[in-house]
Design a protein around this nucleic acid. Structure first.
Lengths: 189, 189
DNA sequence: ACCTGAACACCGTTCAAGT
DNA sequence: ACCTGAACACCGTTCAAGT
């Protein structure tokens, strides 16, 4: 009765619990009301910490991408970096139920200054010798391929069908290698 | 042959009206109730023609893919076919509001026999000399890349951000070319 | 065969009011 | 500052009943 404890909600707590709920029930059942229930709070309470559900999903997607960057170690060259990053993103998307669908529908949080953001994103590849334009284009290609692939992988019936006719993980790696090799061909020199 | 007393609903009508509603209001507002309203019918009436909303979305996704295949003409070789198909799919996804998100969440309709379906899908590339395994793997790679790319393109804030730092269409084509070239490298001979 | 009316069990979000 | 209670305007889906 009357549970009014000192620790109040934080955005991090909300996101963490949202991931738990996602794992347990799937994206369809990830509602603000259920999430609030898990946090022993009424649904409107969430709106003090978060502007709307889209922002919450955006924060979750941000975490999934962040895990991919964190899983990409120091690389020999930009091709190595892209391969590592593609595999890490693939793993990160697969590590959360409906991770790919979540990222497919999430809007990016806080549109900061585009140029600053761009050079931050390009930084790891720039450090390996790519110009910023190329760094962004190549990374976008790898993300698109990986997100698209993971989308199919996350689609139950589609996955069951494709599993019967190909080795899913091996074919992903082959495709990723093909993409990175192809990007290499376009390099001057 | 036998004349019907009144023109009743058909699945095709429902799908056609769903595309109109999608264009006008977006995926968020594509509800069974609104769709029924547009068809001058009550919502439960739709459930006589369609098992559920997921099936309806599946039929819409099927049409989007079908347009991509229809937009792929006779090709010189399998690389040409993949390039054409990638561009046609890109165009088809972009031609409907939220087309990529729709395909990302739709489940494929009617899981027929996997082997039969597989050879149907592989047919155009098999005719150009690819073995069925390669045909499926290469087509899956192109679809994944294109769907993933279109997903970002359809994401309003993300698109606005990326537009500032790259030429979206040109970079798509470059990535697609890189992917297909890279697949070519893996060909024996 | 095909559709309506009414209902069930939900949603996201707002907002005055409490603490 | 942080949360509740109550409400608004919706959802997808089921099902008995009508035609």
């Amino acid at each position: 009765m009357a549970p009014r404890p000192l620790p109040s909600l934080t955005r991090d707590q909300i996101v963490a619990q949202a991931f738990i709920l996602l794992e347990e029930e799937g994206l369809e059942s990830l509602s603000m009301r259920r999430l609030a229930g898990k946090l022993n709070v009424q649904a409107p309470a969430l709106y003090w910490h978060v502007t709307d559900k889209a922002e919450l999903l955006g924060m979750m997607a941000r975490d999934i991408y962040a895990a991919a960057y964190a899983g990409t170690d120091a690389a020999q060259d930009w091709r190595d970096w892209l391969m590592q990053f593609g595999r890490a993103l693939h793993a990160s998307l697969a590590s959360h139920r409906d991770g790919a669908r979540l990222c497919a529908m999430a809007r990016p949080p806080s549109p900061l200054d585009a140029q600053i953001q761009a050079s931050r994103i390009a930084a790891p590849l720039s450090a390996l010798g790519l110009e910023e334009d190329q760094a962004l284009a190549h990374q976008a290609a790898v993300i698109a391929f990986t997100l698209g692939w993971s989308t199919y992988e996350a689609n139950g019936p589609m996955r069951d069908f494709l599993r019967q006719i190909m080795d899913f993980d091996a074919t992903f790696t082959i495709g990723l290698e093909a993409l990175v090799s192809g990007l290499d061909l376009r390099r001057p020199g």
